[in-house]
Design a binder for these strands. Structure first.
Lengths: 142, 142
DNA sequence: TCTTGACCTTCCCATGATGGGAAGGTCCAC
DNA sequence: GTGGACCTTCCCATCATGGGAAGGTCAAGA
């Protein structure tokens, strides 16, 4: 199986497969005489594993840890759960951060007329107590 | 006011102030004879505006748009609201995506013993129906 | 006056994960 | 034997930010 077929079979782009090899996430593959990488079913399984981990938001570093745990028959499931739990906490922290933004923005947008008049509480919030600056371009047109 | 003082006053790092100037988000500042940038109160207000916009998750591109609207006395508040509304939608999309990950991960973590035994539904999920690969290193130790 | 340390300047590099594309080699089907 | 679809490596871009080097400047204190 060439890299294109492994890509189709795993859903990981050929570009990424080469990158994962470069950073040591997957082993360097064997080559045929023409210097093409050769893949088998097992490599495709590994790539699918990586894709699934990425789709759940795990970083490549976390994915590498999970991959090693998967390949370690004597792993303790606690180690896997720790990685997942930490990731959940990180996701929840980021979600809360964004929800805070949304809450503020929705309030401001609600208070904004959204019409042809210039008065705008959104800009007022961003400006703080600063006076509107003198009209000028921040970027000169070419 | 030198860049360090403008940084302290605005909460934007000197590094970022120079970068914002480089990409045209803020005007190139005047220089003193020793080639130091000079800032006034108005520039600090602009930097605070940028910082506030960034803290609400607006991209630098969106921030530039908002900055121009702020400086345009004849703006229509609808234009500002449009930017905010689109950003809210983007945040909500990303939040929903992450919430989906959290939901899946919490379910898997809940089902995982998290003990010293190797059996792990989290890895089972990541692996799909693939057999556990033969134990091997993905990265050779030095 | 000289030194020291805290500034400032520009320039280059790194992040994380991915894509785009060029230049060149290979293989297969017609 | 030729064209097109592959493959290879290499470089660059993203987005916003930080780190750090090498060198210039300034102010305060001995």
């Amino acid at each position: 199986m060439n890299i294109g077929q492994a890509s189709d079979a795993s859903g990981v782009s050929a570009k990424m497969i080469r990158y994962y090899e470069e950073i040591g996430l997957i082993r360097p593959m064997g080559r045929t005489g023409n210097n093409y990488r050769v893949y088998g079913e097992e490599e495709v399984h590994v790539l699918r594993f990586i894709r699934r981990a990425r789709s759940l938001g795990f970083s490549l570093e976390e994915t590498e840890t999970l991959l090693k745990l998967w390949q370690d028959q004597s792993r303790e499931s606690a180690a896997v759960k720790d990685v997942a739990t930490a990731h959940i906490a990180d996701l929840e922290r980021r979600i809360a951060e964004m929800q805070g933004m949304v809450k503020t923005l929705k309030h401001l947008a609600h208070c904004c007329g959204g019409d042809q008049r210039p008065n705008c509480p959104i800009l007022d919030d961003l400006a703080g107590d600063a006076p509107a600056p003198a009209p000028r371009k921040t970027k000169q047109p070419a």
